[in-house]
Design a protein around this nucleic acid. Structure first.
Length: 105
DNA sequence: ATTTTGACTTAAG
DNA sequence: GCTTAAGCCAAAA
């Protein structure tokens, strides 16, 4: 299961600052495998450590909340993001305001 | 080693 | 704008 790739994905997920969100594609790119967005989601599904791996800060490219195996699912995910100050666009995240950008710090 | 599935992404209808 | 189809990479069976 979790190998170096997934391990890197978890590390990146932890690097996402509070109140920000990153897309699967972006994490895949940072993980060293651009286009491996699906693989990133797979790693999140394994989600070994919820408190250590803020998978709820990981959203789809269009800002839609997908999956989430913990808590009440997307309901919990959306609540946590709102609590962290992430800007929401209805059921989706306002990437224009809350997408984590490497270099933006 | 091959096949299937999956929390994705982009394109087309 | 929303739905359907194909492409993509990685891990599990």
């Amino acid at each position: 299961m979790a190998t170096a790739f997934t391990e890197t994905v978890y590390a990146i997920a932890r690097s996402i600052p509070k109140g920000k969100v990153a897309t699967y594609g972006q994490i895949a790119l940072l993980a060293g495998s651009p286009g491996a967005a699906r693989a990133v989601g797979f790693a999140m599904r394994c989600n070994p450590d919820i408190p250590k791996t803020p998978c709820h800060r990981v959203v789809a490219s269009n800002g839609a909340l997908t999956g989430y195996s913990a808590g009440q699912g997307l309901s919990t995910k959306r609540t946590m993001l709102l609590d962290e100050g992430v800007s929401f666009k209805g059921t989706k995240v306002n990437l224009k305001e809350s997408q984590w950008q490497k270099g933006l710090r």
